[in-house]
Design a protein around this nucleic acid. Sequence first.
DNA 1: AAGCTGTCCTGAAAGC
DNA 2: TGCTTTCAGGACAGCT
Length: 271
Amino acid sequence: MPELPEVEVTRRSFADRILGAEVLSAHLGKPLRWPLGCLPETLVGRRVTSVRRRGKYLLIDLDVGCFLVHLGMSGSLAFDRRLPPAGAHDHFELRTTLGTLRLHDPRRFGAVVWVSGEDDERARKLLGGLGVEPLEAGFDPESFHRSLKTRRASIKQVLLAGDIVVGVGNIYASEALFLAGIRPTTRADRLSLPRARRLHGAIVDVLSRAVALGGSTLRDFRSAAGQDGYFQLDASVYDRAGQPCRTCASVIRLIRQGQRSTYYCPFCQKP
DNA sequence: AAGCTGTCCTGAAAGC
DNA sequence: TGCTTTCAGGACAGCT
């Protein structure tokens, strides 16, 4: 499922190729998570000026307005001069002078939302509460530790909430906590500065490594250029319940936190 | 304010 | 074999 690395890999796979494209038409399929927010025909003639990312959202800037694209859990984008005929799960298509951008999303947790700008009410609602970018300078160990001090929930759930640091989803939360040697059930506000530092480093490490490897293919991720990701080849704990820890051979455990699966090593990860 | 729970959706896998 | 049930997950709405 797309987390920050998958979204970033998707962005890089078409950002340069779509720059300057002029919209020829826009088509909607079945309803996605939210309505588009404008009439598709009003998009004709708009030009793509940049493709950015904020958390797990892609921001496709036009000369007038911007698309916020979220891949949900089963979404993927394809961009090419020619694409195969649209299928049952292709729910948004933007034909441009440089190619067609298409959202494929079987479970339709994803969304494409047009906003007039960053201060648009819907843009503020969706982007306003997001935490810092983990791969940018604003993410530093000391302020991360200070933020964690305000939260009594488990560290795993605080990471997933995305209001302190964005982009860490279910897979990478388990992986980062393993790397940091921290039990996922540990209360966020009980983490010492050294342990918060370790976690900070682990998050940066696991996310940047996943971006470099082209994202995770644990479910069905593909970049917009059709490349598979390879991160699953070295997942330490995710989806490995009952298997031996690669570090200490203890049996990897599976628990539920907030109706989500969490995987951890009972020996390597301390409460 | 922070933190729960419910909700959306469908394919895959498990259960009968 | 074929049907039914369960599960997976991101993130918002609406509670407490």
